[in-house]
Structure formats: structure tokens, C-alpha cells
Nucleic acid binder design. Sequence first.
RNA 1: GGCCCUAUCGUCUAGUGGUAGGACAAUGCCCUCUCACGGCAUAAACAGGGGUUCAAUUCCCCUUGGGGCUACCA
Length: 471
Amino acid sequence: MDVRVRFAPSPTGFLHIGGVRTALFNWLFARHEGGKFILRIEDTDKQRSERRFEDDILKNLEWLGITWDEPPARQSERLEIYEKNLKNLLDSHKAYYCFCTPEELEDEYQAQMSQGLVPKYSGKCRSLSEEERAVKQLKNPGVIRFRMRDHVVSFSDMIRGKVEFNTALFGDIIIAKSLREPLYNFASVIDDADMKISHVIRGEEHLSNTPKQIMLQEALDLPTPKYAHLPLILGADKKKLSKRVLTNSLNDYRAQGFLPSAIINFLMLLGWHPSDDKEVFTVPEMIAAFSIKRVQKAGAIYNPEKLDWFNAMHIRQLSDVELAQYLKPFIPEEWASDKNRLLRAIAVTKERMKSLTDFQKEAGFVFAVAEYPATMLVWKSATVPQTITRLEYVHALLTKDDGVVFPSEHTATALMEYANKEGRGDVLWPLRVALSGREASPGPAELLRILGKDESVRRIADAVQKLKHTL
RNA sequence: GGCCCUAUCGUCUAGUGGUAGGACAAUGCCCUCUCACGGCAUAAACAGGGGUUCAAUUCCCCUUGGGGCUACCA
């Protein structure tokens, strides 16, 4: 059997982290099995669907590298096929028109509940004659209901095993508002069959829709795909994440400097685990390792700190040149155009970054020294505050350096000898502050190397001036 | 309320009918002029009750907790 899976979002909001996880598991499954991954836009709800959301979903999936194998299908462009199947169902009396108003239904449900009964459609319009139907339809277009056969539906979920539902509890569900306005359970069944979807991998919130869809498949004589219902991603409050705010939109993650591979790695391990303890995966490794059998059953609480960690790990796995590309949207243009300096800045900053947005503040000193007080140059544990003369000594030492590599091995040795003699903190601290303008920074040796001779000497001279003016 | 799903450290999880392992976060120590990295270490879990069994975290049942669904949304 050809493996064909789909991600079927409804464009009623920006792509969010829960949707990405569903897409990802489908995609990993397809890639692992050598099958096809298909995108289907479920935009049957005309009120809530918006083109900008569809664009957002496609754009972000692309950014994540979750690629689709066929042009995306849009349900709003497939109305003929739904209409045809709806007519078929109507003609064979497996579906019928219902003219009960929402108000009537509401009253009915209230009455049932007050008697302690399960609210369920009474079946009032189930056996209207053709004439009655025609008369009623004059003033009320009605909706189309599916005649639900009382039956215990049993199916085997790839993740949960055998699941059973009694359809008698559902009543006759509405499958379309009109011949050209299908509703989710119906449109989804038609499309999965028409697109020859072999495995339906979706969120657990659809578990209770599955028996309804299976009954529809039976009525339409369509095959039943294999089902896998993924555990939900929950927020810190343990509620379904997608119900929560839009701070979980992918656009936000992107703007906050997360790498696509880090997001994917993090999401893959939320509800899935390899047979060993490996955690940091490249995308090809994920595809190779993925198996639906090892998907978790219980919902997983989303843990932003671990995402930060994955992001830091993935940033480190990038080459300096690759990282420079990712950094582009997060840095001033002057930085990006000064390629050599940028690459050197990346080299010392890479392992200090948890997010791409960290670069600007971590590496800013490479491009310009921020204003700092002269007192910062004095080491807090300085035995004797001779900061000026020590910096002057270092300045003189470096000025003499004419090695091709700065500082030359000879100078570097001399510098460390001096530091060991005078006290490391007494020499290295002021030197480091003079070079970076900051209390926390990479070490002085690294700074000298990335700044180069001219800039280093200039910065130290500036520091000496600063001290002289202040004291 | 009804139906369904589910239950191992704070979080993500491994695991087995017979010492409960890893990761994130936390804490401490080491490295060290600072920050970060790194290294080492500490603390931290089988929801409860019944069975089955020589033995249950593991298998079964119940309870409890959590979640989802219960739309003319998907």
C-alpha cells in the first residue's frame, strides 16, 4: 500500500505550535516510509477562514522545511465532489433534510438534559415525505443530516490500540449546511478517500470524530484509512495548547530567534522518544529514527526552557557561515556587510547564544564599544590599583607586536608572563574591559584575536585616557 | 452530566514480573580575570486501593487526578 498522509489545517488562525507538531509527525512518517505528504486546506467555514491565514500556514511550513509533495488542495475548490456525494446520500435516504431551527434544537436539548438524558437530535425530520420537505424548504433551506445507524464502532488506533464507540449516543449528525456547504466530518471523509490517504495522523481531539467518519465511510462505501491519534500538547495549565493565546504562533518563534531545526527537534521529542537516549537530532536523523510505534499516549506539557536548550544546541551545530545567514534578519546592515568581522564575532559568540536575538547584545562590542565608567576598569579584587600603568605596559607590549597573527605567539607569551607576575585579575580584567567595554565578555586573548591589532591598541589607549581623566 | 483517552522526578521521558535510567530546569563544587562553554556531584518520580503472583512500577479491576469531545467549528 502506498503511504499517503495529509496535514489538513483550517485557515482560521496563524500556524501554531500544535499544528506544526501534527504536520511534523505526518511529514516524518511520510519521509520515513517513503510516502507522500499532502497539504489540504480545510476552508469550509467561510466565516472564519481567511486567505492570510492560509498564506501564513504555507509560509511557515516552508520555513520549517516541512515540504509537501503535491499542490495544496483547497476544500472550497472541491464543492462539486461534495455535492455529488451529498446527492448520492440523499437519494439513497442515508441522509435527509432537517428543518429544525437552532432555537428549536436548543429547547429540545434543554428539555432532555433537565430529564437527565443525553442531549441528542430527536430525529424529528427523519421521515418527512417528499411533499412535506418541498413545502418546508420554501421558507427554510434546512440542513443535511446523516442517518446514523446505531452501532458499536470498533477500530484499531496505531497509537492507542482498540477503541470503541457507541454511535447511538451521537444521533443524526449534520454533515452539510447545504449541497455546497459541507461540514468537517463529511468533507474530511470524502477528501481522505478521494486523495487516497492511507494513514490519518491527527490530534487526539479528533478521536471521538473517528466513529462518525467511519460510519460515513460505510454509507458511502469508502475505505477506512488507518488512524493514529497523537497526544495533545498542553500548556502549563494543562489545557490544549491550540486553545491558548496566539503567542504560540510560529511567527513569534521565528521573530524570537528560534532555528527551524531546533523547533522541529523539540516538537519531535514532545510525545515521541527514540529507543536510545539521543536528544539532539539533525533532520535526516529524525527521519531515519522516527516510528509511530513509539509515540506517547498521554498529553505532554510544553516546556519552553527545553526549547531554549535545543535552540542553543542547534545554533552551535551550524557553521559560522551558515549562522551568519540565519543572523541576517537580526542584525544591522552594517554588521552584515562587514563580513569578516561578522564571522569573527560569530566565532566567539556562538556558544553564548540561546537564540538568534542574543547575538546583537552578545557581539555588539565587536562593532562598537559602549560607553562605560572608568571605574569598571579596576578589578574588584585588585591588590594595588595600578590599572593605568598596567594597561600602559600592555599597550606598549602590543604596539611592538609585528607578527602576522595578532597577537603573535611571542607577544602572547610575554603578556601571560606579565599577567602571572602582576596577578592575572589585575592585568586581564582591565584589559578585557578595555577591549570589550563590558564586565562580562569572552577572554582577552580571544578579544585581541578578533579585534586585530589596530582596534585593540586603540581601545586600550582609549581606556588609559579615560582613567587619566578620571583620576 | 454523558462518552472517550490517559497516569514514572517540577517538566519531557526510558524501562522491566525481581537495584527505577537519561535530558531540561534547580542547587553545589571544579575550571576561571568576568561571562559562557565544559566537567563532576546533589536533590527529585512509579497517584491510591484491591486483586493475580514466591515477587507488581510492570498484568487485571476499581477509585482518584488530568485531558479531549459533547456546534449549522475544525
